[in-house]
Design a protein around this nucleic acid. Structure first.
Lengths: 211, 211
DNA sequence: GAGGCTAGTGACAGCCGCTGACAATTGACA
DNA sequence: TGTCAATTGTCAGCGGCTGTCACTAGCCTC
């Protein structure tokens, strides 16, 4: 980890990632070529592809960090918590610790900026959604194990995770299109949407007034 | 619609689609180039791209047909039905009428085959999920209008649709990985998963026994 | 400290998806 | 039948991505 070689590698990777995010957020994803990134770092295109599986991979790298942080939080939740509450707490915890997770690479604002890029770039959004589906798979297994159930035969963990993820997707989307683009706004939206989950599922809807 | 030109165009399009599906399901999506498809039809690559926005577009064309059939069904549901029930009935109705919708292009088996291809090809799955997100948007508006709510300020229609879509995603996935690959199996899974939605959301889970 | 060993890089060639531009063809319609 | 418009083919080119191979630079041993 501390040999010169390793440090050089890590520096190259971070340089590539930083430049990529910079260009994606300023110029746009489609308007940025891999060559642009590689040239800006002073490295060959081939090298870029040795560090990232593709252009998408670089664009989603930050998000991947926060996601794995979230999954860790879920695993660390006390076992007596009901599953849905464990997910809820883990997400909120994720927002609170986002700073420490992301700041080692870029300032948090850049992360927020990338979110807008992802949400507004069809091919990136698609890749993001597919990754989310993979995360759902992982969460399903975690919850099943927590509760001593068999994820292969019992659909309930999978269903709960799917519902939860659906709510979070709605939250992400509204957040990224709203004017308010802060972590506090994200927290508030998360809480409010999860509270509305019950009422939204009732047979018929009573008139709604914003609280 | 019945001029010679139009008929020729439609025939070309259907030929391209049929050949594409044939190759995708037998050889695999990634292993099939656009040139393969165009050559097999006896048409230039450029022409393929005049009929389909891309390779993905051809692979998802069948699915798009069934989806729009489903959306139509939702719109046609009687207004007194609670929203979730309307979605439920529309989906089941969708499976029942799938034959008529798809058979004009390829036999139903091919459609089922394409589903496996989509589910097992990362880039296709990603595109499929993104399209599903767009469908959610449409459904949200339909439900909001049905209930006389404003989709822009009231999150409940959006949340309900997200939850419903989450359940359907789980259903699709399990169906495509199960051995049972029939419409009846899909119907049964749909019904059972929607019934389990309530129990899956309860605070704690009681032991589960398969019915 | 010189040697060989290996991980990391650059340079090159090439495939595939996709697009723009223009010329050639083929159906429509007077 | 001749004119016009729609459809197609050809060609050139870009960008993402991969395989190959030679080269460089850090590592490790004697």
């Amino acid at each position: 980890m501390d040999t010169l070689r390793e440090r050089k590698k890590q520096r190259t990777r971070e340089a590539l990632l930083r430049v990529a995010i910079e260009l994606f957020t300023t110029r746009g994803y489609e308007q940025t070529t891999v060559d642009d990134i590689a040239d800006a770092v002073g490295v060959s295109q081939r090298t870029f592809f040795r560090y990232f599986a593709g252009k998408e991979d670089a664009a989603l790298a930050l998000d991947a960090m926060t996601v794995s942080n979230f999954v860790d939080s879920v695993r660390a939740r006390p076992p007596h918590e009901p599953p849905l509450e464990a997910l809820r707490q883990a997400v909120l915890q994720g927002w609170d610790t986002l700073h420490e997770v992301v700041e080692s690479v870029v300032p948090v604002e850049r992360f927020l900026g990338m979110y807008r890029v992802i949400e507004s770039t069809p091919v990136l959004l698609a890749a993001h959604l597919r990754r989310s589906a993979e995360v759902e798979e992982v969460l399903t297994r975690v919850l099943a194990e927590r509760e001593g159930l068999d994820a292969a035969t019992d659909p309930r963990p999978r269903l709960l995770v799917a519902v939860f993820s659906g709510v979070m997707r709605v939250t992400e989307r509204q957040w990224s299109t709203d004017g308010e683009f802060s972590l506090e706004a994200m927290r508030a939206l998360t809480v409010s949407h999860l509270e509305l989950l019950g009422p939204a599922l009732t047979g018929t809807w009573v008139p709604y007034t914003k609280t």
